Computed example of a mutant assay.
Amino acid sequence: MDGPGLAAIAVGSVFTYAGIKGLSIPQAVQSIVQGKSPADLPQTAAIGTPTSAAGDAGTSTGGDGQIVQGGSAQATLQATAATFGWTGDQWQALQQIEMHEAGFNPKAKNPSSGALGLAQALGHGNGAATAGTLGNEYGGEGLTDEQAKAANSGDAGAQALWMCNYIKHRYGDPVKAWSFWQAHHWY
């Protein structure tokens, strides 16, 4: 079996386990990214009961998706993408965009344009309320001003949520965004 096949099985296993235990997907993924076993988490709801990670430690909501903290920037972006249901081909497309934009570096800054971080956001900040230590390029796209300030200071979780919301709202999904990127070399 090849790598993508094993990845699909792993992702399916996380979704199944989270469903059986009544955990949110972001909660189970975050636990795994942090090296914890999902089995150690308490069951938060009965099977079939809608769950929300809004009150979970380490996550917060902001528009669509979830901010996921912990692990590498790549693991954070992948876990955030999973909150949008973007796995398999969608994750592969998002990974391609990221490798061409910032290489999973939340402090990457384009010296000519000023584009910042994982998403290479540019010109979305809205004044002092969102300015961070690295610039003021993130704002809107479902982030609170405080989350935008964190993104503008290099927070991979806030940047990943902004990027996923931006792609969802502008293109619909990463496969369509990657197709656009291939034609234009930006997204």
Rank of each mutant, 00 (worst) to 15 (best):
Q96I: 00
E98C: 15
T44S: 13
A54I: 14
A39P: 05
G62E: 00
N105L: 07
A45F: 04
K109F: 12
T87G: 13
L122N: 04
T87P: 11
S31D: 05
G55K: 07
N126S: 10
L122R: 08
Q69P: 00
S72E: 02
G35F: 06
A131V: 13
G117V: 01
N126L: 11
T61W: 05
D145K: 12
T87F: 09
A102V: 00
A128C: 09
L118N: 05
Q34K: 14
L77V: 12
G114Y: 03
A129G: 10
E101F: 03
A128D: 06
H100S: 15
L77K: 11
A121P: 00
L134D: 02
W91K: 05
E141W: 15
G117A: 00
Q30Y: 10
T133Q: 15
A121N: 01
A39F: 09
V29A: 08
P50L: 04
N110T: 00
P106V: 01
A28V: 05
S113E: 10
D145M: 13
Y138W: 10
K109T: 11
N105T: 08
G88L: 05
G71H: 02
Q30W: 06
A121D: 01
L23Q: 09
G35V: 01
A108N: 11
Q66C: 11
N126P: 08
G58P: 00
A81I: 04
G117T: 00
S31C: 07
P106G: 07
P42R: 15
H100C: 14
G142A: 03
A121K: 03
I67T: 04
D89C: 01
T51A: 03
Q69H: 11
S112F: 13
D64F: 12
Q74R: 15
G123A: 12
L122P: 01
A108C: 09
A28T: 00
D64Q: 13
D89L: 08
S37C: 13
M99Y: 08
G135V: 03
A75Y: 03
I32S: 10
A119N: 04
N136T: 08
L94E: 08
E137S: 14
T87I: 03
G123S: 11
I47V: 14
P106C: 01
G55P: 03
Q90P: 05
N105Q: 11
A39H: 13
L23D: 09
